[in-house]
């Protein structure tokens, strides 16, 4: 399933890369795109339950899922 996550606190290309890398480390999650201008990350999740892990990974890096 594809999901668009709204993330606050992204302000540059490095934020995008950082979150892409963090989410990609989660088994069953794949990042399609991350855009700091719109503050969104598009991900493909194998299961809905993986979203919790994605949210944790985003917050661990100092960003907030809104």
């Amino acid at each position: 399933m594809e999901k668009t996550i709204k993330v606050s606190g992204m302000h540059c290309k490095s934020c995008e890369i950082l979150l892409e890398d963090s989410i990609s480390e989660i088994k069953g999650a794949r990042v399609i795109s991350a855009d700091h201008k719109s503050g969104t990350i598009k991900v493909v999740l194998e299961k809905e339950s993986i979203f919790v892990d994605v949210k944790k990974a985003v917050e661990k890096e100092g960003y907030k899922v809104v």
Binding site: H11, C12, S14, C15, I17, L18, D21, E61, G62
Partner: peptide
């Protein structure tokens, strides 16, 4: 080049 913020530092460390 391009080293500007805390996120950049985290990426370099990784």
């Amino acid at each position: 080049n391009g080293l500007n913020c805390a996120s950049c530092e985290k990426i370099v460390n990784r």
